[in-house]
């Protein structure tokens, strides 16, 4: 299992026990997104304090890659200034995941950034980057 490039222990660990999953009541920002290819759904609740992400929760369902990406990113996003969080690139997420992401799984990995960006800026496009 240790030689598995995609399903590394760390990825599976985040998939099975995701960090910051659930809902936040009350919350200041929220958004909900679907990956139209596979029907995965991911929502986010964000509490804002002094222009920064004070706390956040993701919720929804998806594959190991989309869920692990949301979980791993959530740890980094806490405390991040909103404007920075709203403009994170695809490369930021792919680098953070640290696993080879094929073109077909790219949207799985980026779904959490997409939903978070929508919550912060209202922009519903996919994050861009070389990947």
């Amino acid at each position: 299992m240790s030689e598995d490039e995609l399903y590394r222990e760390q990825i599976l660990e985040h998939y099975k026990r995701p960090h910051n999953f659930g809902e936040l009541t009350p919350h200041d920002l929220e958004a909900f997104e679907q990956n139209p290819l596979c029907g995965d759904e991911l929502g986010v609740h964000i509490q804002v304090d002094d222009g920064r992400i004070a706390d956040l929760r993701f919720h929804g369902h998806g594959c190991a890659i989309s869920q692990a990406a949301a979980s791993i990113a959530s740890d980094e996003l806490k405390g991040m200034p909103l404007d920075q969080a709203g403009s994170l690139s695809a490369d930021w997420m792919i680098d953070l995941l640290g696993i080879p992401i094929s073109p077909t799984r790219r949207k799985c990995a980026l779904l959490n950034l997409k939903v978070m960006r929508r919550a912060i800026t209202g922009d519903s496009g996919w994050p861009t980057g070389v990947g």
Binding site: Y7, L37, C38, H61, G62, C63, A64, I65, Q67
Partner: peptide, 23 residues
């Protein structure tokens, strides 16, 4: 149970098996 369809298709692909995942 415990294995998302996307991951099922990915894991099957490793064995050369083409199956579809999604809605």
């Amino acid at each position: 149970e415990g294995l998302h369809p996307h991951d099922i298709a990915e894991l099957a692909n490793r064995e050369g098996v083409c199956v579809r995942a999604g809605h």
